[in-house]
C-alpha cells in the first residue's frame, strides 16, 4: 500500500445547516460555511465506514469457477460442482492507523570457525514507520477471514446500515484498540530487531492517526459437490478468493504418498552414498545431515498432502485439511515517510 487511504464522513452543521466533512478518526469538526467548531462524538465512540461492492455476481461466479480448477482439488469439481447460492455480505473490521516508533538494541551472533568463539556484533536500531492494523470485529464463524487489505483504488463512503446486509459487532472497541496498538508496537520492535539474534533492550510507542470500524464487502458462494456443502469467500472489490473449502483430489493424494515416500528414501540413500564415497568422517556426517533434512522436508510435504488432502482449506480456515493460499496478515506497513536507523 503506497498511501493510507483517507476516509471522509459528511455531516450537517447544527449551527447553519451546511454540509460539514470530517476525516476518519477526528473529533474536532469545523463548518466551512459558518466557521463553527464542534466536538464530534458518536454513540459507539468510533467512525463507521463502508466500502462499496464492486464485483458483480457474474464476475464473482466466473472467478469462483476459475478457483475450482486451482490446486489439488477434485478432478471433476468444475464439472460437477453446483452453486447453491451466491450472496454479498459486509463484514466489520477494526482498522487502526498510526505511527509505530521503536528503539531496539542487541547483538547478532556469528558462528565462529572451529576453535574461534562466536562473534557477537552489537546492533542498535530506531524504527519510525506508519502501520495499518486490521482485525475482524466479529467472530468469523466458519468463514475463514481474519484481516483485510483495502485496495488502493477502493472508495469509502459513509456508513449506511439501512441499505446493506451487515454483521453485528459483538467485540469491544477498547479491546480492539489495545490489541491493535500492542500489535503495532510489537511489529515495530520486530522490524527493529532485523539481524539481531538476542535483544537486550527494546521500547516501542504507538501514535494513533485513525481508528475506525470498516465494513468491507465479500461474496459468499455456497456450492455442493456429491451432496456435500462447500463454500468460497471472495473479496467484493478485488474478486480474489479469500477463503473457502473444496473437496480434494484422491489421485494427487496417492501420488504425493508414492512419490514423496520413495523420493525421500532415494534422496537420503543418495546423500549417504556420496558421503561414503568421499570417505572422510566429516563428509559422511555432513552428507547424512543434509540427506536427513532433505528427506524430512519431502516427507513432511508429501504426508500433509496425502493425509489431509481430502479437503482443501483456502486462506485462514481452521481445522483439518490441506491448507492453501495466503492468510492476510493483520499488520501492513506504509513505507512512505519512514525514518529508520540501523547500526
Amino acid at each position: 500500500m503506497s498511501k493510507t487511504p483517507k476516509i471522509i464522513v459528511s455531516l450537517t452543521c447544527p449551527n447553519c445547516g451546511g454540509q460539514v466533512q470530517s476525516e476518519e478518526g477526528e473529533s474536532l469538526v469545523l463548518c466551512k460555511f459558518c466557521d463553527s467548531v464542534f466536538s464530534l462524538t458518536t454513540d459507539e465512540g468510533i467512525g463507521k465506514i463502508m466500502y462499496r461492492l464492486d464485483v458483480t455476481r457474474e464476475k464473482a461466479e466466473a472467478r469462483f469457477l476459475e478457483w475450482l480448477k486451482e490446486g489439488p482439488k477434485a478432478k471433476d469439481l468444475e464439472k460437477n460442482a453446483q452453486i447453491s447460492e451466491a450472496y454479498p455480505i459486509y463484514l466489520p473490521f477494526w482498522r487502526l492507523v498510526g505511527r509505530g516508533k521503536a528503539c531496539v538494541c542487541g547483538v547478532e551472533i556469528k558462528k565462529g570457525d572451529k576453535d574461534e568463539p562466536d562473534r557477537r556484533i552489537p546492533h542498535e536500531s530506531l524504527v519510525n514507520r506508519e502501520y495499518i492494523y486490521s482485525d475482524i470485529a466479529c467472530d468469523p464463524g466458519d468463514l475463514g477471514i481474519a484481516a483485510i487489505r483495502i485496495p488502493d483504488h477502493a472508495k469509502a463512503v459513509e456508513f449506511d446500515d439501512e441499505s446493506i446486509v451487515t454483521f453485528g459487532v459483538p467485540e469491544s472497541r477498547d479491546d480492539a484498540y489495545s490489541e491493535g496498538s500492542a500489535q503495532i508496537k510489537l511489529q515495530a520492535i520486530k522490524d527493529g530487531k532485523r539481524s539481531m539474534d538476542e535483544v537486550y533492550f527494546s521500547k516501542a510507542f504507538f501514535f494513533e492517526k485513525a481508528f475506525s470500524l470498516v465494513y468491507y464487502p465479500f461474496w459468499i458462494v455456497r456450492y455442493t459437490y456429491e451432496d456435500r456443502a462447500y463454500f468460497a469467500v471472495l473479496d467484493g472489490i478485488t474478486s480474489q478468493v479469500i477463503s473457502g473449502r473444496a473437496p480434494g483430489n484422491a489421485g494427487s493424494q496417492s501420488t504425493a504418498a508414492a512419490l514423496g515416500g520413495t523420493l525421500s528414501g532415494a534422496v537420503l540413500a543418495a546423500f549417504i552414498f556420496f558421503g561414503l564415497a568421499l570417505g572422510a568422517i566429516e563428509a559422511i556426517a555432513l552428507f547424512f545431515a543434509f540427506g536427513l533434512i532433505a528427506a524430512a522436508g519431502i516427507i513432511g510435504f508429501a504426508y500433509n498432502r496425502f493425509r489431509y488432502g481430502d479437503e482443501i482449506l483456502e486462506g485462514a480456515m481452521k481445522g483439518k485439511g490441506l491448507k492453501r493460499g495466503r492468510k492476510q496478515q493483520c499488520i501492513e506497513t506504509n513505507y512512505e515517510n519512514t525514518y529508520d536507523m540501523f547500526n
Binding site: 515416500g261 520413495t262 532415494a266
Partner: peptide, 8 residues
C-alpha cells in the same frame, strides 16, 4: 515407499 526408495 520410503524403505523401497532408500534400499533401491
Amino acid at each position: 515407499a520410503f524403505v523401497l526408495g532408500f534400499i533401491g
